[in-house]
Amino acid sequence: MKRTVHALVSGEDSALFRVTAVFSRQKLNIASLTFKRSGGTNGTSDMKIVTDVENERQARQLIGQLNKLVDVISAADISELPDCDKEKECVAPEINPGC
């Protein structure tokens, strides 16, 4: 089942690697990945990852493992959000005026 995961991560260079390592450890393929620096002084980045999980339990496990990472400020399964809101999680408003 297709799931979309959003993670707000700290600006550490290794955050991208750490997040994707959680997926590979659980043998989850990444169908698409967006990584965007927020540009603020706090140096955070937004990640949006689309993946396929076997069941709800695996999805919960994935979010739990992501939230456990020191560099992840928050991680959530945003699959149930309308597509427009999903985009808001990861795309700056000025380049996504339709939402």
Partner: peptide
Amino acid sequence: IDPSEIGKNVR
């Protein structure tokens, strides 16, 4: 103390 352990093997 580790929430990711809850439900990992036994629900």
